[in-house]
């Protein structure tokens, strides 16, 4: 499929880079979503621990988000 699109656009490398960036960002977004959903879940179960959960979830989101930047910057 990539080769077809590559033939259309004329540059298969651009397509590959774009795909990597898109997939990487999408996966990072899914990761962040998972963390956020689970954090909401956890706070709903145990509202008293919201402070600790916030810290943990921000850490998790930051780590998942980093993948998006790897995909964006290291793909070219």
């Amino acid at each position: 499929m990539f080769s077809i699109i590559g033939e259309i656009t004329g540059n298969i490398r651009d397509v590959a880079v774009g795909t990597v960036q898109a997939v990487g960002c999408a996966m990072a977004a899914i990761g962040v979503t998972c963390v956020g959903a689970k954090a909401v879940d956890a706070v709903g179960r145990n509202p008293g621990a919201s402070g600790k959960i916030l810290v943990q979830s921000i850490l998790g989101m930051a780590l998942a988000e980093a993948i998006a930047f790897y995909a964006l910057f290291f793909s070219k």
């Binding site: 930051a62 988000e65 980093a66 998006a68 930047f69 790897y70 910057f73």
Partner: peptide, 10 residues
């Protein structure tokens, strides 16, 4: 790398 790129990227 990850620290710098996370902040820079954002």
């Amino acid at each position: 790398i990850s620290l710098s790129f996370r902040l820079f990227g954002n």
